[in-house]
Nucleic acid binder design. Sequence first.
RNA 1: GCCUGCGUAGCUCAGUGGAUAGAGCAGCGCUUUCCUAAAGCGUUGGUCGCAGGUUCGACUCCUGCCGCGGGCGCCA
Length: 588
Amino acid sequence: MTAAAKRGNRGPMRLEHAVEALGKTALHEALGLDAPAVVRRSQDEKHGDYQLNGVLPLAKKLGKNPRELAALVAEKLQNPSIFSKVEVAGPGFINLKLTDSWLAEQLALLANDANDGIEQVAPDTIVVDFSGPNIAKQMHVGHLRSTILGDALVKILRAQGHKVLGDNHLGDWGTQFGLLIVGMRTFGDAEAMKKDPIVELERVYKLASEAKKDEVFANEARAELAKLQAGDPDNKKLWEQFVAVTRESLDVVYADLGVTFDYWLGESAYNDALPGVVATVKAAGIAREDNGALCVFFKELEDAPKDLAANEQPFIVQKSDGAFNYATTDIATVFHRSTVFQADRSIYVVDNRQSLHFKQLFEVAKRLGDRQKLTHVGFGSVLGPDGKPLKTRDASGKVITLKNLLDEATETAKKRLVEEELDLPADELDAVAKAVGIGAVKYADLRQNRLSDYTFDWDKMIAFRGNAGPYLQYAFARTQSIFRKAEVAPAEALKAPFVLAEPSERALALALLAYPDAVAGAAEHLEPHRICDHLYGLARAVASFYEECPVLKSEGATRASRLALVATAGKQLEAGLKLLGITPIARM
RNA sequence: GCCUGCGUAGCUCAGUGGAUAGAGCAGCGCUUUCCUAAAGCGUUGGUCGCAGGUUCGACUCCUGCCGCGGGCGCCA
């Protein structure tokens, strides 16, 4: 039984699914076969609300005239309580217009649904691995994508009913610590370390990275790393200090962003498991030694995926000096998620540049018997206005740390709020400014397809105009403003029957009813920007509705219905913003 | 060289094999005695990189080419 069937007629449905199902039934009745109805929203409203495209490929297959076939199907679709118009058009499309009363009925289900209409699925345990910053570095704009995307994905999957574990897989182990230890001894400034430890760590790390070109320095670093990994107490103490200092600076940014994790299992958490991983890989017979390192060569394996086999690049599980690397750690992490977390799926929200590594990792994990569904959610790089990878300083020499960006966005929002001279209580000003500023930064990142590179434009990001975070917050605030004046609680208003008379009321209803499909699409493709698109469309529908339909000045059933529309829109904007990790504000 | 991603309006970007390819910004014009103008309405703007192919139908799928980026041995 499907989730929708289980729910019976008590909960709302995904509208597109519902129409698809009606279409499928009609195809079956008319032609005696099962085929997808291929239902899509109409691009142009003069073609109706939805169109059924499935007849055309069938006509080809059956060798029949598509328009005649479409006419047969259209006949079976006749149902005056659901469709006000069923029309064969063009080469064999069937245009469908839904009745106002059926829309109103569906809308009432949606408005009063506990999950805002989001389809509840059979729950999986899903680990979302995101953010994963490195020790000794401040977060910069490049870290935003993984953090924001991952956080949104956690929330979206949770909203579907999954058990989701957010895991921050910190880069807290490995070669860089040898460098840091020697670097601190050579270049460290105790005063600076007290004053602004993360900045000092970063400075020292940069110097050490330069200095490692010198063989003596590099050897020293390797020796200190070996000591650390062997459990040397002095080095362990230093390592702990580096991690703690970094963690402090990270916590400030995560607090600003409102991002939390269920686990902080960095690379160091898997140290003890690494020898076992190597043993397992050896036992599976998929690796061999090459130049002293233990490597998996995919072109030597049976049935290896073509792109992996075509690549010379081996997957190195143990280095020639016997040490382990990130491949080893990542395999251990996969095992941990399977055995300890009982995860059905793991999702890695990591830069596209690591896509080969993840393909290799997933293939190896499969060959080692892991049964999780492993997915790499990649994303493009952050580019500067010149189209090149973003510098850590902008043209004016300003350091683009994430903290600086968030602070400036908040400042700009605050300035704007003061200028507007709204009736905002003074004690709310800072919180609202923060919600607006940070919401703008998050939305600017989330609204784009994650795969494309991202052109970072500081000014645009804090312009707060058009398709931007503050516009959505503004749309929500306006809905709440109406209820303050109406002196009715939105939850009460929702209970009124919907009357869809004006075109903008109908358009708003259609926009609202598309939410469950948008969330399902975002979850299926792991693309939060689908929710951004939906919410922006909804906010526009609400704005147009305000122009055409006075709410408070209307009367009787019309007023009650309009209040219900505003309440439903407000509820959905609020829920949708929360899925994106953006704070809805009742007053701005 | 091999692998991989991208190329859509002046700029930044959407676009499930379907009808006349859409937004925002920028430009031009209009709307505030009216529930928040961070808004609304209108308008200008396109060889969907190029060439083939598959298809009733291609921005979408396939092949080749051009252009830009990323990855390519012990960093992560």
